[in-house]
Simulated scan of single mutants.
Amino acid sequence: MKKKKHVPKRIIGRLELVDFPQFQIEGVEAKIDTGAYTGAIHCTNMQVIKLADGQTRLRVNLLDDAHPNFDGYLMEFTDFSLRTIKSSIGEAQRRYVIRTVIRLFEEDFTTEFSLSDRSDMKYPVLIGRSLLRRGGFLVDVSKRYEAQKKRFAPGGMRS
């Protein structure tokens, strides 16, 4: 039997600032939600279009003008799926899901995010259990912005 390598867990706060390098978006406030399996990103203007060659694309605006890095550009995804996701109130909703890179603790993780209008929510990004497990994170609900503290600490990646 192969012994599993022990990797020390990192403490993550109930809120974190995250980056989406593929979209050139930095410093988005994210809520950690251990009740959600998949993460979620706020988006608007979702539309699926069918091109002349038969390809299907998903067009969305990620975030909105309330976020300082919002540029108003429509983003297109060719790799997406439509799934049934349970909302925070237990209601089943059909949502588009994409795979993208999220940066946390100066490390990049590829994970899935459902796309939904979160304008009535306080935080535009939700991080679920799937990423928490793969990243080896433990959630300390009494803390906030733990990844940022490591990022800007003396001897950290940025000054």
Rank of each mutant, 00 (worst) to 15 (best):
F105R: 13
A147R: 04
A36D: 02
Q24W: 04
T84P: 05
M75F: 02
G72T: 11
T84V: 10
L62T: 00
S81L: 02
E16S: 02
R57T: 05
A66T: 13
Y73K: 12
M75E: 08
R99A: 08
K143L: 10
L51G: 01
F152R: 06
A36I: 13
V139G: 11
E26N: 11
L58M: 03
C43D: 09
G72H: 06
R158L: 14
D79E: 13
G54S: 04
I11S: 03
F20L: 15
E107Q: 15
F77G: 06
Y145V: 03
F80R: 07
E91G: 01
S159G: 06
G156E: 10
Y37T: 15
M121V: 01
A153F: 01
K3Y: 08
I32K: 12
G156N: 11
R134Q: 15
R99N: 09
K122H: 03
P21S: 10
V139R: 09
N61H: 08
S87T: 11
I102L: 13
F80G: 02
K143G: 05
I41H: 07
D33K: 15
G35Y: 09
L74V: 02
M46A: 07
L132W: 09
I11C: 14
Q55C: 06
D33G: 14
V48D: 04
G35T: 04
D79K: 12
S119L: 00
S114K: 00
V125P: 05
R134C: 12
P8E: 15
I41S: 07
V125F: 07
L74P: 05
I89Y: 08
R59M: 00
D120Q: 14
E146H: 06
E26D: 08
L126K: 01
A153L: 12
A30P: 14
L82A: 06
T78V: 00
G35P: 11
H6N: 09
L131C: 07
D117S: 00
M121K: 05
A36H: 11
R144C: 06
L63H: 07
K31W: 08
S142E: 15
L62Y: 03
K86S: 10
L51I: 01
H42A: 09
A30M: 05
R158V: 14
R14V: 10
M1Q: 11
G156F: 09
P21L: 06
Q22Y: 13
R158C: 04
E26P: 01
K122Y: 01
T44G: 05
T111I: 10
D120F: 04
S81H: 01
M157V: 14
P68T: 11
I12Q: 11
L132D: 05
V7Y: 14
L63E: 08
F77W: 13
Y37A: 05
S87L: 07
A30Y: 08
H42Y: 10
T110Q: 09
S87M: 02
G72W: 03
F20I: 02
T110Y: 10
D19F: 06
R118L: 06
L138W: 14
D140A: 11
A40P: 08
I89K: 15
A36N: 07
K2Y: 14
D117V: 00
Y145I: 01
R94A: 13
G136Y: 08
